[in-house]
Design a protein around this nucleic acid. Structure first.
Length: 640
RNA sequence: GCCCACGUAGCUCAGUCGGUAGAGCAUUUGCAUGGUAAGCAAAAGGUCACCAGUUCGAUUCUGGUCGUGGGCUCCA
């Protein structure tokens, strides 16, 4: 009676099954193991649930937790599990959205009182109960209008709002026991699939990310197919915490922030200052090599300057209150550009003088809302590795190529290869300059990125009002992306300051101005560097490259002399002559993540050598002093 | 700025159901001359973030301020 249909699998093989079989049953025919591991499926590339019934010949692909699709469904189902538990414990709760995210999920609720950590435990327990109940998850479909009525009757105003924004037609609902949610799916077939989970945190989150709308209660969680995987993930989170630059910054004595000095203001300790000095020296040298000139500008400027630049109009909420100097208002600078423009305007320029490339490690101060401050990564006072390029239109594409190459060279020098590039285009409404300039500049940016052969994403409408830009972001230890490099066109400043050059025709012309930062800010860059290397800096960046340890007091003098000799050769060396055991001092040096530890005792004194221990190795090896110095110099000269 | 949590010695953390506090590490001193991830001992170190309120009495309870952490929004 029932006819057979042909199912084609991704490997090209096919099997014949009874028409109207569920995918779950078909999976069983392929293999029991796969049937157990499968979470969702794709039928002719459309994602569906396992209880979807196939009626005709089709392609079928099954997804387990190993795939992105499987994980997504798993975490999304976990968020429904969370929501069901919340519904049971807090019947008055209203439901907003609950998507899967990287390594987990969240769900936003509106509740009468805010959640407490104890609530989290209760909710977790209830979730475990629902898992044990092994409730079937059922997909339902209904016309949008009917769904609106249905959710209205339950008082689910957020769901109704979501439905209003959907195109008219059929929408899907997922029901598990007494709980039902508006959802596109797909979902896991039963609640028992979610074997191991943990709720991680409670946070406030604005409805639809809009701070003018209600603040909802968000619960974050993670879920895994087995307890082992959950434990492994939690352990991973622990390890990520260990490379947090705030923790390492203290342990390595790089910097501190004090309540007494002010939030978001960095105090650089000697070791951190040394690191900065290394970075900044390299930066300056490379800029001179790459056709830049360096300039310096003051920390404050008169209000008329910021008025002309437009900052008082469009950036004032980020600027600190003015100070009165001889009856005039002066502002601490939030940006360096107006000063660089004033340098430009100090004389006239010919088309033959362009391009100009002026760079400055300029320290700026910006008001950041208290809730966003974060170690070195988000501060109120920071040093931008700023530069402004002024060029003729015909030079512009070449300048973009140059600056992008330079940027990638710098990032790679510091060991970064994993970054994301975004091309931000013209915003929809508010923007300056004419469309031709925008499209020409945007095309130049795009072509340059493509020539460099790097992947990028287009951030449509994400440009500043004054010009399109390329942003390069680097990931921190917690997987958060931080913007470092930025290359931005500025159509606004040249206009406002009437920046011109004299062309071959003897007429005044408006040049292109490009604002760029390669490392972004020194503060943020150091923060990202610390996490990138987990504090184990390569030789050329290590504030201390070598610690020399004496075994007995007899060797102290010799150790101090060697320290001076190494220092004279330009190596960053410290000696530890404390009256402590050698094990104690070695341990101390290891904890400070110093690349090399050198031990000097009787034997080394007699043979003119050092017992050398490399970071990460447990064994030591005795090397003649000169050979050791040469080794250190070779390693210190290497950038990667 | 908003939501939640937190703030005890330089660091990591105990503790006090309201009667002015404790450990380990670090520091100092003494002993130990010790050979590659913590030698032994002693001492010193705290306005329990700050300011109000309640109380006979507040580090503990309440409120506010500042700061920190996780988010949201915003940004290098």
């Amino acid at each position: 009676m029932s006819s057979e249909i042909k199912i084609t699998l991704p490997d090209g093989s096919s099997l014949s099954v009874e028409a109207d079989s569920s995918i779950y049953d078909i999976a069983g025919k392929i293999g029991k193991k796969l049937q157990k591991a499968a979470l969702v499926a794709a039928v002719n590339d459309r994602l569906v649930d396992l209880f979807f019934h196939i009626k005709e010949n089709t392609n079928l692909k099954l997804f387990t937790f190993a795939s992105a699709e499987g994980k997504d469904a798993f975490w999304h189902s976990a968020s429904h599990l969370l929501a069901q538990a919340v519904k049971r414990l807090f019947p008055g709760a209203k439901f907003a959205i609950g998507p899967s995210i990287e390594n987990g999920f969240y769900y936003d609720f509106e509740v009468e009182r805010n959640f407490t950590p104890e609530d989290l435990e209760k909710i977790e327990a209830e979730m475990a109960k629902i898992v044990a109940e092994d409730i079937e998850v059922v997909r339902e479909e209904m016309p949008r209008q009917k769904a609106i009525e249905y959710f209205s009757s339950m008082g689910e105003s957020y769901k109704v709002e979501l439905l209003m924004d959907l195109p008219d037609g059929t929408v899907s609902l997922y029901r598990q026991g007494e709980f039902v949610d508006l959802c596109r799916g797909p979902h896991l077939p039963r609640t028992s699939y979610i074997k191991a989970f943990k709720l991680l945190s409670i946070a406030g989150a604005y409805w639809r990310g809009d701070e003018k709308r209600p603040m909802l209660q968000r619960i974050y969680g993670t879920a895994w197919p087995t307890k082992e995987e959950l434990d492994a993930h939690l352990k991973h989170l622990d390890e990520v915490e260990k490379r947090d630059h705030r923790k390492l910054g203290r342990e390595l004595d790089l910097y501190s922030i004090h309540e007494e000095t002010g939030a978001g203001l960095i105090l650089w300790h000697p070791k951190g200052a040394r690191l900065r000095h290394i970075i900044e020296t390299f930066w300056r040298e490379e800029h001179y090599k790459n056709g830049y000139d360096l300039v310096y500008s003051p920390h404050i400027g008169k209000s008329t300057l910021w008025d002309t630049s437009g900052h008082l109009g469009f950036y004032s909420e980020n600027m600190y209150s003015p100070m009165d100097i001889d009856g005039q208002d002066y502002y601490v600078k939030p940006m360096n550009c107006p000063f660089h423009i004033m340098i430009y305007k100090s004389r006239g320029w010919s088309y033959r003088d362009l391009p100009l490339r002026w760079a400055e490690l300029g320290t700026v101060y910006r008001y950041e809302r208290s809730g966003v401050l974060h170690g070195l990564l988000r501060v109120r006072g920071f040093t931008q590795d700023d530069a402004h390029l002024v060029c003729r239109p015909d030079q512009m594409p070449d300048e973009i190529d140059r600056v992008l190459d330079f940027c990638l060279y710098m990032l790679r020098s510091f060991g970064f290869s994993d970054f994301k590039v975004y091309l931000a285009t013209r915003p929809g409404e508010k923007f300056v300059g004419d469309e031709a300039m925008w499209s020409e500049a945007t095309r130049a940016l795009r072509e340059s990125v493509e020539r460099a052969g790097i992947d990028y994403e287009v951030d449509e409408g994400g440009g500043a009002f004054y010009g399109p830009k390329i942003d390069i972001k680097i990931k921190d230890a917690l997987g958060r992306e931080w913007q470092c490099s930025t290359i931005q066109f500025d159509f606004n400043m040249p206009e406002r300051f009437d920046v011109t050059y004299v062309g071959s025709d003897g007429q005044k012309h408006r040049p292109y101005m490009i604002h760029r930062a390669l490392l972004g800010s020194i503060e943020r860059f150091v923060g990202v560097l610390v996490e990138h290397y987990a504090g184990r800096f390569p030789m050329w960046l290590s504030p201390v490259q070598l610690v020399l340890i004496n075994v007995v007091s007899d060797a102290a003098e010799r150790t101090a002399r060697l320290r001076d000799e190494f220092a004279a050769r330009g190596l960053r060396v410290e000696s530890d002559l404390r009256e402590e055991t050698i094990g104690y001092k070695v341990r101390d040096a290891i904890e400070k993540k110093v690349p090399f530890v050198g031990v000097i005792g009787k034997k080394e004194m007699e043979s003119g050598s050092v017992s050398v221990r490399r970071r990460g190795e447990n064994a030591s090896r005795t090397i003649p002093v000169d050979e050791f110095a040469a080794l250190l110099e070779t390693e210190a000269a290497r950038k990667s």
